[in-house]
C-alpha cells in the first residue's frame, strides 16, 4: 500500500447544457504538466503516427493521380504487345487475367487444404506429436521467402512426371512453368493464413457447443460440418481473403513458375486446360517489366497497372474489415 497523499478532487460544476460536457480528464493531467521526457516521447509518437499516414496517403495519392491519368478501358481490354515505343505496347489484359487466374487457382487449392488441416489439428489432433509437427511445418512454410518456394516448385514441376502440367519440349525437357504450377505453389503462401484463421475460429468456440452436439449422438465429423464450421465461416472468409491478398502481391513465384511472359501463352489444344498449362504474367511482373527498372518502355502503363493492383489489394482489405465488422454485429459470436 503506497501512502500517496490524498488530493481532494476539485469540484467541477455539473454541466447544464450539452455543449459544456467535455470528456472527463483526471484533474491536472494535461500535457503541460508532464515531464519534458514524457512530452518528447508523446510528441514523437504523434509524429510517427502522422508520418505513417503521410507516407500511405502520398503513395495512394501518387498512384491514384498517375493511375487515373493513364488507366482507361481500352488499356484494360487490349492485349499487351512487345514494342519499343510506349504507343506500341498495347494494354494490360493478359496480366490482369493472369492475376485473377493465379489467385483463383491458388485459393482453390489453399482453402480446402488450410481448412482441413486446421480442423484436423484443432478437433482431432491425435497423435499429439503429429499435430505439433503439422503446426510447426505450417509456421515454417509461412516464414519461407516466396522465391525459395518458387525455386523448389520449379524443381518439382520440371520432373518428367509432371510434364502434363506444363510445356514439354521436343527433346523431352519439361518447361515446368504454367498457371497450374504457379497456382499450386501460390497456395502454399495462402495456406498458413487460412489455417491460422480457421484454427483461431475453432479455438474460440465454447466447449458446450461441441458437447451439446456429441450428447445428441452426433459424430465428431457431423458436429464439425453442421455446428462448428458454419459458426466460423467469417473467420475462414477472412483467412481466405488475406491469403488472396498475399497471392495477388506475389512476384517471385510469377517470375519463376509462370515465366512472366507478356501474354498468356496456351499449351495444347484443349480449351481452358491449355491456358492452365501455359505460362503468362500477372500485374506485379507486368509493372516491373514495363517500368524503367525492366524493359522500361511503357512507364505510363506500369503506373496504370500498379494502380489497378493497389485497387485490388485495397478492395481485399476492405473485404476483410467488412467481414470482421459483420461478425461482430451478428449474434453468432455470443
Amino acid at each position: 500500500m503506497s501512502s500517496a497523499p490524498v488530493v481532494p478532487r476539485p469540484v467541477t460544476p455539473v454541466p447544464t447544457t450539452p455543449q459544456e460536457r467535455r470528456p472527463v480528464q483526471p484533474a491536472g493531467d494535461s500535457v503541460r504538466n508532464w515531464r519534458l521526457r514524457h512530452r518528447i516521447a508523446h510528441g514523437a509518437a504523434w509524429a510517427a503516427g502522422i508520418f505513417v499516414i503521410a507516407v500511405t496517403a502520398s503513395i495512394m495519392g501518387f498512384m491514384a493521380w498517375k493511375g487515373l491519368h493513364y488507366l482507361n478501358p481500352s488499356l484494360i481490354w487490349q492485349r499487351p504487345t512487345p514494342g519499343l515505343a510506349q504507343g506500341d505496347t498495347g494494354g494490360i489484359r493478359d496480366p490482369l487475367i493472369g492475376t485473377l487466374l493465379a489467385t483463383f487457382i491458388g485459393t482453390l487449392f489453399a482453402a480446402p487444404l488450410g481448412i482441413a488441416t486446421a480442423v484436423w489439428v484443432g478437433e482431432y489432433g491425435k497423435p499429439a506429436k503429429l499435430a505439433r509437427a503439422i503446426e510447426s511445418a505450417i509456421e515454417m512454410v509461412a516464414g519461407m521467402p516466396n522465391i525459395v518456394l518458387a525455386i523448389f516448385g520449379l524443381a518439382i514441376f520440371q520432373l518428367p512426371f509432371f510434364s502434363f502440367l506444363s510445356f514439354k519440349a521436343q527433346g523431352g525437357g519439361v518447361y515446368g512453368r504454367s498457371f497450374i504450377a504457379a497456382g499450386l505453389i501460390m497456395s502454399l503462401i495462402a495456406i498458413p493464413l487460412i489455417y491460422t484463421a480457421t484454427r483461431e475460429g475453432l479455438a474460440q468456440l465454447p466447449a458446450k457447443l461441441r458437447e451439446g452436439s456429441w450428447a445428441l449422438g452426433k459424430t465428431k465429423i457431423c458436429t464439425i460440418r453442421t455446428v462448428l464450421l458454419p459458426q466460423i465461416r467469417p473467420n475462414i472468409a477472412t483467412g481466405i481473403v488475406l491469403g488472396m491478398g498475399r497471392i495477388v502481391g506475389d512476384t517471385a513465384i510469377v517470375v519463376v513458375l509462370l515465366g512472366a511472359a507478356l501474354q498468356i501463352d496456351p499449351v495444347g489444344d484443349t480449351p481452358g486446360l491449355n491456358v492452365l498449362r501455359g505460362g503468362g504474367s500477372t500485374l506485379t511482373t507486368y509493372v516491373y517489366a514495363a517500368s524503367p527498372a525492366g524493359e522500361g518502355n511503357a512507364p505510363q502503363k506500369a503506373y496504370a497497372a500498379a494502380f489497378l493492383l493497389l485497387l485490388i489489394v485495397v478492395f481485399l482489405n476492405a473485404l476483410v474489415g467488412w467481414i470482421g465488422r459483420r461478425t461482430k454485429n451478428s449474434e453468432i459470436t455470443q
Binding site: 465454447p206 457447443l209 458437447e211 456429441w214 450428447a215 445428441l216 449422438g217 459424430t219 453468432i332
Partner: peptide
C-alpha cells in the same frame, strides 16, 4: 455404439447450449 447410446441416454447441461 456411441451415437446410438447417446440417443438413448440424453443429456441437458448446466448452461443452456442451443446451437446458433
Amino acid at each position: 455404439e456411441l451415437p446410438r447410446l447417446r440417443r438413448k441416454i440424453a443429456m441437458v447441461f448446466q448452461q443452456p447450449n442451443p446451437f446458433p
